[in-house]
């Protein structure tokens, strides 16, 4: 059995002259959290809809859990949970009734429905409001109920569209925690987001989208190495002339570049060489005041990549 849960080859969607998704090659392995990242309108939602068979691709192949969503939509949708952005509920019904409807649509046997629904709601900690009308729910509660709604069918793959959008930082953090615990139980998760820094922490691999194309794919450190040159950026705050230690630092192993900015030195390296850098400064007769390693943020990678891309097209 293949380890790929989801695979697309040359997936393309056009609306008239507008190309929403262009020749997308995507693969998601079992048990990983994959992030489709990019600004609004980059083609993330269209991709997701094609994966679920809710929109027909113009060209290309899709395989989700071994099924073709365009030909076998029922098999796909039975096994894949989808949480749309701004998930909506029937406001006149209670949380329980909303989920029972979904359970029935999934053909879950009658005698199991109540238990499955209660389990799912307990999972997202909404048990106290299970019999309240969803019209009274706050944004955060709705989002959690959306997750419960997906869990009712016990999916092998969960696809979430902008799961943290519109949540305050605390709620977003809590929600990401829930996603993380799902991952630990072995569920494969594909999520889309334009809030790069929020999802960076929980994604095993990411794909960066821009104007319908996936421009970068890989783990965050991989992308950092590819785009930013060094995977680690070490900041040194020193006393005295910076130029003096520059040579010493440049002579270290695994160092890609050394730059001076606002009196601080920034060492780009392939490894975490803080100890070596400190030693080098001291040996060169300098005094070290501060030493820190900057974690690579996806925002930096994204911005840098597009700066470079723009630069290249200008040249």
């Amino acid at each position: 059995m293949t380890d790929l849960v989801l695979e697309t080859k040359g997936l393309t969607k056009r609306y008239g002259d507008f190309t929403a998704v262009e020749r997308l090659d995507l693969s998601v392995r079992r048990g990983e959290v994959f992030g489709l990242l990019g600004p609004n309108g980059a083609g993330k939602t269209t991709t997701i809809l094609m994966l679920l068979g809710l929109t027909e691709p113009t060209e290309g192949e899709v395989s989700v859990l071994g099924f073709d969503p365009a030909r076998q939509p029922l098999s796909v949708k039975k096994r894949v949970g989808y949480m749309p952005d701004q998930v909506g509920f029937y406001d006149d019904l209670t949380a329980r009734e909303n989920l029972i409807y979904i359970a029935k649509l999934n053909g879950i046997p009658r005698d199991q429905i109540q238990r499955r629904v209660e389990e799912a709601i307990e999972r997202v900690r909404l048990t106290d409001v299970i019999d309240k009308r969803t019209g009274t729910f706050s944004r955060g509660m709705r989002q959690r109920l959306g997750l419960a709604d997906v869990l009712v069918k016990k999916p092998q793959l969960i696809i979430m569209d902008e799961p943290t959008q519109g949540l305050d930082p605390e709620l977003a953090h809590e929600f990401l925690g829930m996603i993380h615990s799902l991952k630990e139980e072995g569920t494969t998760i594909l999520l889309s987001s334009h809030l790069l820094h929020q999802v960076q922490a929980i994604c095993d691999r990411v794909g960066l989208f821009s104007r319908g194309r996936m421009v970068l794919q890989g783990t965050v450190p991989e992308l950092a190495r590819k785009v930013l040159g060094g995977a680690y950026r070490i900041q040194l705050e020193t006393e005295g002339s910076a130029a003096k230690f520059r040579k010493a630092l440049e002579g270290l192993r695994d160092v890609n570049a050394v730059t001076v900015k606002d009196g601080r030195m920034i060492v780009e390296a392939q490894k975490d060489i803080r100890a070596e850098a400190a030693e080098a400064v001291v040996k060169a007769g300098g005094r070290l005041r501060g030493l820190s390693v900057e974690s690579q943020s996806l925002d930096d990678i994204y911005t840098r990549y597009f700066e470079e891309a723009k630069h290249e097209t200008v040249n």
């Binding site: 809710l54 029922l74 949708k77 949970g81 989808y82 749309p84 701004q86 998930v87 979904i102 999934n106």
Partner: peptide
């Protein structure tokens, strides 16, 4: 408008 359509159609029904 209630945004329930995509959620319902993501279930295994036509």
């Amino acid at each position: 408008n209630r945004r329930t359509l995509s959620r319902v159609l993501a279930q295994p029904v036509y």
